[in-house]
């Protein structure tokens, strides 16, 4: 794997991941760039097949460092913004919980493949495209020549199926599962 391949194949995915926790694109870009370089420098033959989990872990740790430093800064500067702090705490908690073992496993991968394969082709395509491109519903609607509502329908249908299939791998729900959102 060359640096270019590493960069071209995983930059997009890594950026979507980090941005979802930092909520800040330019910060996320820095973290992603640094992480890809770290991975590239430390990548050896034995790790090639574990590339994705390795990248994930580097990104996760750098991102946690950043969020925690934000936490400290916000307290010290006394910009006391309670809303911002509870938002930040939620993100730190969520990322802390998200470890390599919980995201990567052969079973998870197989369940996803099976579930997606069981969906209608169009639903699967639109869902995958949305995940991989990070495009908005309206952009996807334009590309596929369908309404935004249909895009939302396909994506929520796929999400619902995946969530049901992956239920055992999601954080435990104390009460009961509510599907109001789908």
């Amino acid at each position: 794997m060359t640096f270019n391949e590493l960069y071209a194949n995983y930059y997009s995915k890594a950026l979507l991941f980090v941005k979802s926790y930092t909520n800040d694109v330019s910060e996320a870009e820095d973290i992603v760039s640094e992480s890809i370089i770290t991975v590239w420098e430390k990548l050896d033959e034995s790790r090639q097949d574990r590339l994705l989990p390795f990248l994930f872990t580097v990104l996760r740790n750098k991102c946690l460092d950043y969020l925690k430093s934000q936490r400290v800064k916000t307290t010290v500067k006394n910009e006391s913004n309670e809303d911002f702090l509870s938002d930040l705490d939620l993100r730190i908690m969520a990322l802390n919980d998200t470890t390599e073992e919980k995201v990567f496993s052969t079973e998870i991968n197989e369940i996803i493949k099976k579930t997606l394969d069981s969906l209608p082709r169009k639903t699967r395509e639109i869902f995958n495209f949305n995940r991989e491109s990070g495009k908005t519903y309206s952009e996807i609607a334009r590309i596929y020549g369908i309404s935004e509502k249909s895009v939302a329908y396909h994506i929520s249908k796929a999400l619902k199926a995946l969530r049901e299939a992956l239920n055992d791998y999601l954080p435990y729900l104390l009460l009961f599962i509510s599907y109001d959102f789908f």
Partner: peptide
């Protein structure tokens, strides 16, 4: 939802 998002992101084909 958060976990589902992370799992799906990392288990999809590379962009």
């Amino acid at each position: 939802r958060r976990r589902l998002h992370d799992i799906l992101l990392w288990n999809s084909a590379p962009a």
